[in-house]
């Protein structure tokens, strides 16, 4: 009986493998394109963003144009970062690099990068943060998570409303909560919301790349992401492991299992 089941599973698995191969082939062109575009765009964009602030004019009229240029450049940079992240995740080259991080600084950077959108849509931001210590995490990835969540809230939430951001320690995990007013993505289509390039039911919600990137980063960091929509409010919640002491003390042998020797090991 067990043998029969085993054979059946084996047969079906081979079948799935075959079907998936076709699926992967059809997707690979898209992946290659993504990776190429991401790398080609990233470098000039970084240079551009470094140079733009030097052009800030004194003249009020010119400043309007300057602000528009800066806003568009920041938006483009953000989209490229998501593309780069998606391309790296797909290629398996998305490594974590941990450092001591101040979450308030990261949050402020994310808000600064989105300042024009927040200003233009007349959105006020309220932040509550109960994380006082520096934490150990991957700053770049944490930044991308915050940037995506706040960008979504400010772009897709109602104008002239408030965004509430809560950073807290919940059961020894870092919880990032972003709440905005407005109709959010349909809860019934949750899997699609976190799938890249899937068109949202309303067709309004961008490329569908940001949230898929956020979900993958969360997985990589051993955290998770979810959202709820109620009473015309949307709340996105990300939880991540909260580590407040430096990891390098751990790596020096406190974890016997991972760092003990391979004496008496079998050699193959």
């Amino acid at each position: 009986m067990q043998n029969k089941t085993h054979n059946e599973v084996e047969f079906l698995s081979r079948k799935i493998l075959d079907l998936n191969k076709q699926l992967i082939e059809s997707q690979s062109a898209k992946s290659r394109f993504l990776s190429l575009v991401a790398n080609e765009l990233n470098n000039p964009m970084t240079a551009l963003l470094g140079l733009i602030p030097h052009l800030k004019p004194q003249d009020m009229e010119k400043e309007k144009v300057y602000n528009l240029v800066h806003e568009e450049a920041l938006m483009l940079e953000f989209r490229i970062q998501n593309l780069v992240a998606a391309a790296q995740i797909e290629s398996g080259e998305y490594d974590l690099s941990f450092a001591t991080v101040n979450v308030t600084t990261l949050l402020n950077e994310a808000l600064e990068a989105l300042k024009y959108i927040i200003l233009n849509r007349n959105i006020s931001v309220s932040v509550t943060n109960t994380i006082n210590d520096n934490i150990v995490s991957d700053p770049q990835k944490l930044f991308l998570i915050m940037h995506n969540l706040i960008s979504n809230a400010s772009l897709f939430g109602d104008a002239n409303t408030q965004i509430e951001i809560h950073l807290s320690d919940k059961n020894n995990r870092l919880q990032i909560e972003v709440k905005n007013q407005g109709s959010g993505p349909n809860v019934a289509f949750k899997p699609q919301v976190f799938t890249r390039f899937s068109s949202d039911t309303s067709g309004l919600h961008g490329l569908g790349l940001g949230l898929s990137v956020v979900r993958s980063i969360c997985e990589l960091l051993e955290g998770d992401i979810d959202f709820i929509c109620q009473d015309n409010f949307v709340i996105f919640t990300v939880t991540l492991p909260l580590e407040t002491n430096a990891t390098d003390t751990m790596a020096c042998g406190s974890n016997e299992f991972l760092f003990d020797s391979f004496e008496d090991a079998i050699e193959l």
Binding site: L17, E90, T195
Partner: peptide, 18 residues
Amino acid sequence: LPFWNGNGLQTPKFGNIS
């Protein structure tokens, strides 16, 4: 896991991608 099922990114946590 053995197979990427077409949902989400093709990450190398699936055998047939990795």
